[in-house]
Amino acid sequence: MAEMNESTRNALGMATGIVFGALLQRGGLADSRTIVGQLTGDDSRVAKTMGTAVAVGALGHRWLHRRGLTTDEPKPMNPVGLVGGAVLFGAGMALSGYCPGTAAAAAGSGRREAVWAMAGMLAAAGVFVATYPRLKRALEAGTLGRVTVAGGTPARAATPPLDVVVRPRAPDARVKPAS
């Protein structure tokens, strides 16, 4: 897609958000009970919704990527940041019943608990900003760069076992020179 100017991008971002928030609310995901219900196994809507969204998104991404219409910049494989972050995230989601997107939709829909959750998120984002310069080295320790999980290519009849393609980028992808 052709380069668009800043305000067009922002307007499109806003429009995307409006549809996203409405879908989360209508799907019942803008509700801590639905998310906690998924974690306890009593409500499968989160898994069904996300599973479908990922499957559809993956097909579309593959299609776009083959035509050079989107970039493939997977988030870097930083084991320390990912594992530590996932543990904290899972615990926080269990406690609040929200995640950053569903909290925004729920806050808009009038749930006060989601406004509290968003306040906590913004405060923690501030703490992260303040501590990031000191955390950066630890979070990126032992990074593997940008790793893509390839497999299940529809073009092939037999699904190959998951193979990990390690594609180290420029030298700065590994360790930033200490400044």
Binding site: K75, G85, L88, F89, L95, S96, P100, W116, G120, F128
Partner: peptide
Amino acid sequence: SAAGGAMLMFGARMADGCTSGHAL
């Protein structure tokens, strides 16, 4: 709600993504 939100946001920034950026 606030404590859970704070924990998960710090985790999300450590991991560089959340339920949307990573999971979706």
